[in-house]
Nucleic acid binder design. Structure first.
Lengths: 242, 242
DNA sequence: ATCCGATTAATGGTACGAACATTTGATTGA
DNA sequence: TCAATCAAATGTTCGTACCATTAATCGGAT
């Protein structure tokens, strides 16, 4: 055991929750860093002075929260995980499913956040980022007007990249994470959207205009373009998160 | 046992995950509705033909996901829960905490989403909701100019309510979720913000103007007011999400 | 000396049984 | 009639044993 004793014995009721709370606290406070090995279940059992079942149940909770990882075998045990966006996305996804939120609501929200990103990206984006955005927009245009028909897969990929770049240009991580979450939640419905030529053309036109305006440093004009699309929303394929 | 047998025995590895998957599937598919009682642990044990530990660990996972509830005693057991927004918000909140996002980034994002909410609320909000918003804004103003000094706690509470109401007025559940998540993440830092008279006055003024403009059906003017605050962001207390 | 396969030890996953705690409903007695 | 008590169902915890997986170690063949 390399690490000093971190945890104190617990007594009373809801032992597994108390155990989970102590471990979570140690992780969130930064006492243990991502990638570090915590202990084996049997070690924790003795540190907390509880049965192994209680430890395992606490670990299950933390694993579901996404803050630990459990490995089998020698050198196995509890490892602190770097939190990933996927966990947050999964929770949202579940919520949307049970509440039967239409995909149009998700798209509307994403577009709304986009508007602000455009402003911030124009103000804070590097020159390189702006240039890259324009290049990608041009690429999109080309892919949509191929003589062999539009390359939907590549268009989707670039659209995704542009979205992430735009978020990154805000220099605000919250935008990046939010965009990630929304993209993951939209996920499988993406294809549905992109199959619609109308949606595709509109999206690409928006990107081209937006990229140009951002590059030209005219955020307010770029914004007004997106306002129009908000006030008269496009017809989207109907669908519910199943 | 009232319900018919729903589940099939599982074998092999990762039994608890298989059990969790079957139960989750039954819930998400609507086979079992929120509020329904599923079974006792001992029942599930026999239905799945696994040990008690496996069942309990599966349930811990589902409980953390927020889709079931566990009650003790007679009439206890597994109950299907109506998903609550807080579960989905918690994950993202954890992520933001671990990554030490500056609170200024959170506030910026919240303000950005607010802008769009104002537009949508003006378009879609009921008359009652608009009236309520104005009333609350007036209340805020009064609370801030009390002869005995501003009542910070009440101001915070009303601000919170207004934020949720504004999100609700968009008639888009995603905005509601987002606002909830942000409020949860900002959480304890709220107090810090509200202690600053400058921030407080600015927030209240914004609310008053916004509420009035929304009620008067002039979304674009309401929006322009908030743009000003975005372009020259207010000085906020420095702080990091710990 | 080097490399590959078998052995071994640490560790998570599962099972079973027992005892305790909590909740609800039924029973009992004043 | 009402309150105290008891009993049954059920979650919570513990302990032990055994299996499966993994990584390190050891040993022999080249």
């Amino acid at each position: 055991m390399r690490l000093p004793i971190l945890f104190s014995p617990v007594t009373g009721n809801n032992l597994s929750e108390k155990v989970a709370a102590q471990i979570e606290s140690a992780i969130l406070s930064g006492t243990i860093l991502p990638g570090n090995r915590l202990s084996s279940e049997r070690d924790l059992q003795t540190q907390f002075e509880v049965g192994r079942g209680a430890v395992r149940e606490a670990l299950k909770t933390l694993k579901q929260k996404g803050i630990i990882e459990i490995r089998k075998g020698v050198k196995g045990g509890v490892y602190v995980k770097k939190l990933e966006i996927d966990n947050a996305s999964e929770s949202l996804s579940l919520l949307l499913k049970q509440n039967k939120v239409p995909i149009t609501d998700l798209v509307e929200f994403r577009d709304a956040v986009d508007e602000t990103e455009v402003i911030l990206a124009a103000i804070r984006g590097d020159r390189d980022e702006k240039r890259q955005l324009v290049e990608m927009a041009m690429q999109l245009s080309e892919l949509n007007t191929l003589p062999t028909g539009p390359d939907i897969e590549k268009i989707k990929a670039i659209d995704r990249e542009m979205n992430l770049l735009l978020a990154k240009m805000t220099k605000n991580f919250v935008f990046v994470w939010m965009k990630n979450t929304i993209q993951l939640s939209i996920g499988s419905y993406d294809s549905l959207l992109y199959e619609s030529p109308k949606y595709r053309s509109r999206t690409i036109d928006n990107w081209i205009n937006t990229a140009k305006e951002i590059a030209a440093g005219e955020p307010l004009r770029a914004l007004s373009l997106m306002f129009l699309s908000l006030c008269s929303p496009p017809e989207l394929p109907e669908g519910q998160a199943s």
